[in-house]
């Protein structure tokens, strides 16, 4: 479960990105955070992904105040519990799909056998197994996204965060992504999607609207 209490993020003393946000997400819930560009969605997701720290407020993930953890523990927590698919995927372009996942998996295991098995499973779940040995820079936008999703799944993360997942996709690939998202939801993953794409209106999900750093249900 994710419990956010009075979360504020300021980048300058006068520039508030997130303004006293509070909300809860239950285990296995699908949440859509909608809002225009610059409303603070990515910052919120970055804080939830433990990639950024708040200025004030509490972020409890599985009852753990994550931003209070020392870096070493935080990295481990992130690797174990959080899968983050960034807007531009943040893949290592000159490596293969498999190697991109291996790097993520390598954070938690030294066993090649275990890594291989989990990578294959994640690639299957993200429907990108057939491109296992392809170099990332040669993939299409949709394939890159599925690779990023597979990477998010490879450590069996229970929380998946998607930042503008359909921004770089055509309508066909966007539709495929929605199907994939529903499948992940069925797997009892807690999912938060930050988007401004109306395609998500068709999904049955808890929706929040983000405006000027404030969150409305």
């Amino acid at each position: 479960m994710i419990d956010i209490q009075n979360l504020t993020k300021k980048v300058q003393p006068n520039q508030t990105i997130l303004d006293n946000i509070s909300f809860r997400v239950k285990k296995g819930e699908l949440v859509i955070v909608k809002g225009v560009s610059g409303s603070g969605k990515t910052t919120l997701l970055s804080i939830l992904a433990t990639l950024d720290k708040p200025t004030s407020g509490k972020v409890l993930i599985n009852n753990q105040a994550v931003h209070k953890l020392p870096d070493l523990h935080l990295s481990l927590f992130r690797a174990q519990h959080i899968g983050f698919v960034a807007q531009h995927f943040n893949l290592i372009e000159h490596l293969s799909v498999y190697d991109n996942l291996l790097i993520a998996k390598g954070a938690l295991t030294n066993s090649i056998k275990e890594a291989k098995s989990d990578i294959t499973k994640a690639l299957k779940q993200a429907n990108i197994l057939h491109k296992k040995d392809a170099i990332v820079k040669n993939l299409s936008g949709g394939e890159k996204q599925r690779t990023a999703i597979a990477r998010a799944l490879v450590n069996c993360a229970d929380i998946l965060l998607f930042d503008e997942p359909t921004a770089a996709l055509d309508s066909k690939n966007s539709q495929t992504f929605l199907e994939l998202l529903q499948n992940l939801h069925k797997m009892q993953k807690t999912i938060i999607v930050a988007t401004h794409d109306p395609i998500f209106d068709t999904l049955k999900a808890k929706t929040f609207i983000m405006q000027d750093g404030k969150l409305y249900e």
Binding site: Q5, K53, T55, S56, G57, K58, H67, K68
Partner: peptide
């Protein structure tokens, strides 16, 4: 969880 403490961290 105050700004002061986060700054200190």
């Amino acid at each position: 969880f105050t700004p002061n403490q986060f700054t200190l961290e």
